[in-house]
């Protein structure tokens, strides 16, 4: 599968997919998309990259161990849920904050943090599965 064309295209394809996945993640609140979908797209990006160029470049590109990313995601989601405790509302109550930026306001929320957490968990877990499976034949 490591054809020349595939190997050449794969990095660009992968980076495009990751960009797209973040876009999908962020727009998820109002249009089709969200953490799960975004995460899956990113994971498949890494999987493609891994198939094309081998596992070690992917690991280098990721910098962190995929499971660590996943852990961070879970932590982020939990933190998003826990934050509400400090405001004396039940666990997982969404909190919203408008940050004025460049004359417009961007809504930042614990919900968004939570969704990012979901994204990271999905990316981390599935990438690590895919990489672990890809690794053996090439090693």
């Amino acid at each position: 599968m490591r054809t020349l064309i595939f190997r050449t295209v794969a990095p660009y394809l992968a980076s495009l997919m990751i960009l797209f996945s973040i876009f999908v993640l962020l727009r998820g609140h109002n249009e089709p998309g969200g953490g799960f979908i975004g995460g899956l797209i990113a994971a498949s990006a890494f999987a493609i990259y891994g198939i094309a160029c081998g596992v070690s470049p992917v690991r280098r590109a990721l910098h962190f161990h995929p499971m660590a990313i996943s852990g961070t995601g879970l932590l982020a989601s939990t933190a998003a849920g826990m934050l509400s405790i400090f405001f004396k509302v039940p666990f997982m109550t969404g909190l919203w904050l408008d940050i004025p930026l460049f004359g417009d306001s961007i809504a930042v929320s614990t919900v968004m943090l939570f969704d990012i957490g979901v994204y990271l968990v999905v990316v981390g877990s599935i990438t690590s599965i895919a990489l672990a499976l890809e690794e053996r034949p090439n090693s």
């Binding site: 998820g28 609140h29 109002n30 249009e31 998309g33 919203w96 919900v111």
Partner: peptide, 11 residues
């Protein structure tokens, strides 16, 4: 504050 109901339910 979300228009995508599915995603709002989820998160």
């Amino acid at each position: 504050h979300g228009a995508n109901i599915v995603n709002v339910i989820l998160v």
